[in-house]
Design a protein around this nucleic acid. Structure first.
Lengths: 157, 157
DNA sequence: TTGACTTTGACCTTATTTGACCAAAGAAAT
DNA sequence: ATTTCTTTGGTCAAATAAGGTCAAAGTCAA
């Protein structure tokens, strides 16, 4: 951890300032332009994106190659207090059984992060999609499914 | 947000706007005229049709050469007797690759079943959760995930 | 002096744009 | 009826324009 600002820190701050201006809808940049602005190699930009704008940190990055290529950066506004989403990611982990999943749903329901209707739907989708899987595999699929559905509901529009 | 747009993107938007106006019945264009309008070579139009108006994305394109030649474009409504969710289940099936998934998302976006933000989130979750899986397995997980997320959004509260 | 973080560069993948050449369908001429 | 333009649209591959990956080399604090 450097005390003085590294190039990476500067680029990070620059992008975050742009995001502040951009508001909703996200921000679009060209990798080469940004690299020229900071007089660095283009792959430096990828490093900044990977280390500072990861989904764990609440960002989504999409990009396209070729003519008309771009990099888009979206900041997920935490509309629910504290880091509920990172807590969910932590709690679910690699694999989760039905009992743990149920307990998690109940907690989210209790705290009104989830509507009753959505909880019912999630239960039935979890059951439907894992019923024919071998238990060990079912746990991993359940984790992926539950994590994605919850994050989608909590962050989506 | 000022979208970066390639020529292809502009032509795509132009055709989609024409289709919106045209309603049922489809739309007829002259390849050469369109090419002149956008000051490009005629084969550019074929490229746009191939990449943006594929049957995977829900379009039908027919054409005829010679004097009085034309290109007709029809947009298909996603339709299933049991409703959009059944249509989605059927379309996704047991396994789906990223290209098919993207086509489905674009199609739902085109028909306003999905918000832009939700589409971005879904894309990112699909990528994140399948990136370390072997391709064959990734396809099945992607199918499960995409199906669940879409149904959750379309049926939920 | 080691370990984590950063910086660089060589090489790779993908999307778009262009142009030369091909094929079909109607129109005109024989 | 058949052949020969003329008018369209189709195909494909090369050139161009992005962005991605990965590992080696460099830095810096503990």
């Amino acid at each position: 951890m450097a005390f003085i600002s590294s190039l990476t820190d500067h680029i990070e701050r620059y992008i975050k300032a742009l995001l502040d201006q951009a508001g909703q809808g996200g921000l679009e940049i060209r990798r080469t332009e940004l690299a020229e602005l900071f007089e660095c190699v283009p792959s430096q930009i990828n490093y900044v994106l990977k280390t500072r704008f990861s989904s764990e940190r609440g960002y989504i990055v999409e990009s396209r190659r070729g003519g008309g290529g771009y990099i888009r950066i979206f900041r997920l506004e935490p509309q629910h207090p504290q880091g509920i989403c990172s807590w969910i990611r932590q709690t679910i982990g690699e694999s989760i059984d039905m009992g743990e999943a149920e307990a998690l749903l109940v907690r989210l329901l209790d705290h009104n992060y989830l509507s009753r209707k959505d909880a019912v739907l999630i239960r039935s989708l979890l059951a439907e999609e894992t019923e024919q899987l071998k238990p060990a595999h079912a746990g991993r699929v359940r984790a992926i499914l539950l994590r994605s559905m919850l994050i989608l509901l909590l962050q989506g529009s």
